[in-house]
Simulated assay, not measured.
Amino acid sequence: MNSDFRIIIQRIEKYFTRRRDTEYYLQVVNDQYDETYNFFINIRPRNQRMHSIPLHTVENYRLSYLEKLINKIMEQYQFSITYDGFVGLRWPMNQELIQKRRHKDE
């Protein structure tokens, strides 16, 4: 987990520039076909288009691993996180739904 965590944090630090009137949030995508989790940082300055920048692909395809990784990231950064491809799945530790309903682009 440490290598995935380090890579994601280093790339977040590179793109998280704390500009005024800019929205930053993370997106985690469940790629069921390749059995990977893809991390993106989405950056949207006010009145401009959103930029989605790939951060890292996690190849350890276990929800328990993903939950620990996200908790560790959230200790350092308090970003909002959107989840895609997780409809009906629950976190192993607290049994909360990860994604309640499909997004319109899924």
Score class of each variant (00 low, 15 high):
residue 90 R to I: 08
residue 30 N to V: 02
residue 14 K to G: 06
residue 35 E to K: 14
residue 29 V to F: 08
residue 50 M to C: 13
residue 38 N to V: 13
residue 91 W to I: 02
residue 54 P to Q: 08
residue 91 W to T: 02
residue 59 E to D: 06
residue 31 D to N: 14
residue 1 M to S: 08
residue 59 E to Y: 08
residue 95 Q to Y: 05
residue 80 S to E: 05
residue 92 P to E: 03
residue 91 W to F: 00
residue 20 R to T: 15
residue 80 S to W: 01
residue 81 I to G: 00
residue 95 Q to N: 13
residue 3 S to L: 12
residue 43 I to H: 14
residue 81 I to E: 01
residue 25 Y to L: 15
residue 26 L to Q: 01
residue 52 S to I: 12
residue 93 M to G: 00
residue 41 I to C: 05
residue 50 M to V: 14
residue 88 G to P: 09
residue 39 F to I: 02
residue 51 H to W: 15
residue 1 M to G: 12
residue 29 V to P: 04
residue 28 V to T: 09
residue 30 N to Q: 07
residue 60 N to P: 01
residue 11 R to N: 14
residue 27 Q to G: 09
residue 96 E to F: 04
residue 24 Y to F: 09
residue 63 L to Y: 11
residue 53 I to K: 14
residue 57 T to C: 14
residue 90 R to A: 11
residue 32 Q to I: 15
residue 86 F to G: 13
residue 83 Y to C: 03
residue 47 N to K: 07
residue 54 P to E: 08
residue 5 F to W: 05
residue 61 Y to H: 04
residue 5 F to D: 02
residue 100 K to N: 02
residue 27 Q to N: 09
residue 66 L to P: 09
residue 35 E to V: 01
residue 46 R to E: 14
residue 78 Q to N: 10
residue 91 W to K: 03
residue 30 N to C: 08
residue 14 K to S: 07
residue 29 V to G: 08
residue 98 I to C: 07
residue 2 N to M: 12
residue 14 K to L: 15
residue 49 R to H: 14
residue 35 E to Y: 06
residue 6 R to Y: 10
residue 55 L to N: 01
residue 61 Y to A: 08
residue 98 I to P: 07
residue 51 H to R: 15
residue 97 L to M: 07
residue 75 E to N: 13
residue 58 V to T: 07
residue 63 L to C: 10
residue 66 L to K: 10
residue 16 F to A: 10
residue 103 H to F: 03
residue 87 V to Y: 00
residue 30 N to P: 04
residue 14 K to V: 10
residue 37 Y to M: 12
residue 85 G to V: 00
residue 22 T to E: 11
residue 88 G to S: 11
residue 61 Y to R: 02
residue 44 R to S: 13
residue 4 D to F: 10
residue 52 S to V: 08
residue 76 Q to L: 09
residue 63 L to V: 08
residue 69 L to S: 02
residue 12 I to S: 04
residue 66 L to C: 06
residue 7 I to W: 03
residue 74 M to Q: 09
residue 47 N to Q: 06
residue 13 E to Q: 13
residue 41 I to M: 13
residue 84 D to Q: 12
residue 86 F to V: 04
residue 12 I to Q: 05
residue 83 Y to F: 04
residue 37 Y to S: 06
residue 33 Y to F: 13
residue 39 F to A: 00
residue 51 H to D: 13
residue 21 D to C: 06
residue 24 Y to K: 10
residue 19 R to G: 15
residue 8 I to P: 00
residue 30 N to E: 09
residue 79 F to P: 03
residue 9 I to A: 01
residue 40 F to Y: 15
residue 31 D to S: 11
residue 34 D to I: 03
residue 77 Y to S: 02
residue 27 Q to V: 14
residue 89 L to Q: 14
residue 3 S to I: 10
residue 36 T to D: 00
residue 27 Q to A: 12
residue 60 N to T: 11
residue 20 R to K: 15
residue 106 E to Q: 07
residue 45 P to N: 07
residue 7 I to D: 11
residue 77 Y to C: 01
residue 11 R to W: 04
residue 70 I to F: 01
residue 14 K to F: 12
residue 95 Q to I: 00
residue 81 I to V: 02
residue 61 Y to F: 12
residue 56 H to N: 05
residue 77 Y to R: 06
residue 47 N to G: 05
residue 101 R to H: 06
residue 88 G to N: 11
residue 18 R to W: 01
residue 73 I to S: 00
residue 2 N to F: 12
residue 75 E to Q: 13
residue 76 Q to N: 09
